[in-house]
Computed example of a mutant assay.
Amino acid sequence: MNESTSEPSGPTPPAESERLPLHGDNAQARRRRGCSGLVGVAIFAAASGGIVGLIGGQVAGLVAAAVIALPLLYVVLFNLRRQVWLEGKSVLVRTWRVRRIDLVAAQRLDLLVTDVRGTRTVALLVNAGQRGKVVKLDLAVYSGTGGRELGVLVLRRLADALANNVEANGMVFAELLIAQLRSEARGDAAPDRPLYRLASAAPSGKLAQRFTMEAVSRFVASL
């Protein structure tokens, strides 16, 4: 009598290899944004084509509408397809293709704070030193005294990956994320958390402010 033994089909992948989204991955919200963008492109192109058509005729109007619509349509579809994940110690960026950027091997790391109509975004700018290997990772978005931040698990994984980066002194940025995690664990309000304080420290009136490793190091030392 033959006995059948069930053997595992393969090793279970470690938890670190799990893909974690680095921004909102809501399919319904993406569809709404896509529909709104397409409607906006159609209205703008039709209006522009209509104005040109009144002056130069129907053919000129159609050409003008197409010339305006095509690049705008490309931008809408590009943003609609763009997704960013953290997988192990690499960042995956999907647009028309998937790019993989190794956080451990990145040659330059900067912190970028942007200010758009009172909403400040704190992002990590990762440069792998190769063409097409630059990505901006939004860590937190603040408006007033509140906002949204990356989850605890994602911040922890990012900190672990950055801590192993020797080329760009990633330990400094890892310490910033660890300080943010500790602040959240203590239950600090948003204005008392390091990322919020860093966003508030950026000068007003500037669309984007880049913080180098040295500036981040001084800030972390002051916490």
Results as ranks from 00 to 15, higher is better:
M1D: 13
E3L: 13
E3N: 14
T5V: 06
S6M: 15
S9F: 14
G10V: 03
P13T: 04
P14W: 10
R19K: 06
L20T: 03
P21C: 06
L22C: 06
D25W: 14
C35N: 15
A42D: 13
A45F: 00
A45M: 03
A46F: 05
A47M: 12
G49H: 01
G49T: 00
G56A: 15
G57P: 13
G57D: 12
A60K: 02
A65M: 03
A66L: 14
V67A: 08
A69Y: 01
L73Y: 11
L73A: 01
L77Q: 10
L80A: 15
R81S: 13
R82F: 13
V84A: 00
G88T: 01
K89F: 12
S90R: 15
V91I: 04
V93K: 01
V93D: 06
T95N: 11
R97W: 15
V98A: 11
V98M: 08
R100P: 08
R100H: 04
V104R: 10
V104Y: 01
A106Q: 07
R108H: 09
D110S: 05
L112H: 02
V113T: 07
D115S: 12
R117Y: 11
V122Y: 12
V122E: 01
A123I: 05
L124A: 01
L125E: 06
G132Y: 05
K133V: 06
V135R: 00
L137H: 02
A140Y: 09
Y142E: 09
Y142C: 02
S143C: 05
T145W: 05
G146A: 15
G146P: 01
G146Y: 03
G147R: 00
E149M: 12
L150R: 01
V152L: 11
L153A: 14
L155W: 11
L155K: 09
L155A: 06
R157W: 03
L158N: 10
L158A: 03
A159C: 03
D160K: 14
A163F: 08
N164V: 11
N164H: 15
N165Q: 04
N165I: 06
V166E: 07
E167R: 14
G170R: 09
V172R: 05
V172T: 00
A174F: 08
A179W: 02
Q180T: 04
S183M: 02
R186C: 13
D192S: 03
P194C: 07
P194R: 07
L195S: 04
Y196D: 03
S200L: 15
A201Q: 14
G205L: 09
K206N: 15
Q209I: 07
R210G: 14
R218S: 11
R218W: 11
R218C: 08
A221E: 15
